Simulated assay, not measured.
Amino acid sequence: MQIARDDTRADWVAVMDDDGRPAPGAFARFRGMDLRGWDAVGAAVRHPDGTICEMNRPYRNPFWNPGAFLRTLARMPLGRGRQGFHLSDADYVPGAPMRAVDMTSFVGLFLSRDALMRAGLPDPRLFIYGDDQLHTLRMRRMGLRIGFAPDLHFDHDTQALQGSTGLVLRPIWKVYYMYRNALIAYRVAAGPWFWPLVPVLLRKWRRKAGDYGPDAALFRTILDQAVRDGLAGRLDRPHDRVLALAGHG
């Protein structure tokens, strides 16, 4: 992204993971779109088998959108709070109109040159997880408009382990980055609601230990360090110390 910004004059830049790829015709379809009024456009990301990739599902920030906030509250007792603010399957139907979103992933994100110049670059200290959330939320706080285009299709060739409480991260050192960065992103998203939200998040996250089986205690140890660093906004813990924390040192 830095090379694209500083060493080219490209009008738009496409961002994707190393295990993400545009479906045939995606770039041609993007070039034919009416992009007036949009500063960035996120693609519909699916697994190679055609199912929606949950980790790349865009959302409207419920703390900025009263409707999404109320839908989230209504679904939380049923354990489906995420459905209140993430886009629905219906939003992915080809031909559906482009929708404004507050967060989308770096798998299939098209950034205008103006957005790249104004919003700057992601923070490399995040290393893994959450960099796209923070970057796109920051764009929205600056007033930049991000659209979700269901007709732009990207594949994400990734296999995510699922437990009873959701995603199970392997290798287990990834737990540190997921939850440290999530706290930092929640601080941006929730604003004055952040501190009342923290106990709810910690209670929810600690329940995930059961999905790690014999590594449940190790999960809690890594999570506790991630929470301490996330609340302090600390991004300077060396990766080798994270590995040591996870028993790989």
Rank of each mutant, 00 (worst) to 15 (best):
G120L: 07
D18C: 07
G249E: 12
A190L: 08
F69W: 12
D11C: 02
D157M: 00
A90H: 11
P66F: 10
P24T: 08
P150V: 11
T8A: 09
I184D: 01
A189Y: 11
V13R: 02
H153D: 06
L223I: 09
Y92E: 08
M16S: 12
G147C: 11
V188A: 00
Q159R: 07
L109V: 14
D151M: 08
I222Y: 15
I184N: 04
L126S: 05
V200M: 12
G67D: 15
W12H: 09
Y59S: 12
Y92T: 08
D114R: 14
Y179N: 07
L111H: 02
Y177C: 04
R36I: 06
D157T: 00
R29S: 13
D49N: 15
P94H: 12
R241T: 08
A209R: 14
W205G: 01
D151Q: 10
G233Q: 13
R206Y: 03
W205Y: 14
G163L: 02
F63H: 14
W205I: 13
L223D: 01
S112F: 11
D7V: 03
V101D: 09
L167S: 01
A160D: 00
D240V: 12
N61M: 03
L78T: 06
N61T: 03
G230P: 00
L152F: 08
G210M: 14
R99C: 01
I3G: 05
D18K: 01
L111R: 02
A149Y: 10
D157L: 00
A23M: 02
L137V: 10
T104M: 13
G84V: 05
A216P: 07
R118Q: 13
A216W: 06
V41Y: 04
D49R: 06
M142Q: 14
V107Q: 01
A190G: 05
A26S: 15
G50T: 13
R207P: 03
R203P: 00
D17M: 07
I3C: 04
D49P: 03
L202I: 15
M98T: 15
V200C: 03
A246R: 02
D131R: 10
G247V: 12
M117H: 09
D19E: 06
H135M: 05
M55H: 14
T221M: 05
G108N: 04
K204R: 07
P77A: 06
P192H: 03
G81T: 10
M142T: 00
T72H: 05
T136M: 09
P238S: 10
L126A: 04
F69A: 11
G147I: 14
N56R: 04
L111E: 01
A74P: 02
L218S: 04
R82M: 12
F85E: 09
Y179C: 03
H153K: 05
V15N: 00
A160I: 04
A100P: 07
F106P: 01
K208L: 00
A185V: 07
D11I: 02
H47P: 00
D114P: 02
G191L: 09
A189W: 14
R118K: 07
W173K: 04
F110S: 03
W195T: 08
L35F: 10
L183V: 11
P97E: 13
D229G: 10
A26M: 14
Q2C: 06
G95I: 08
M16L: 15
N181I: 02
A74L: 12
R220Q: 08
P77D: 13
A209W: 15
K208E: 03
G191Q: 05
W193E: 13
R141Q: 12
K204V: 09
T221N: 01
N61P: 06
L78N: 05
R113E: 03
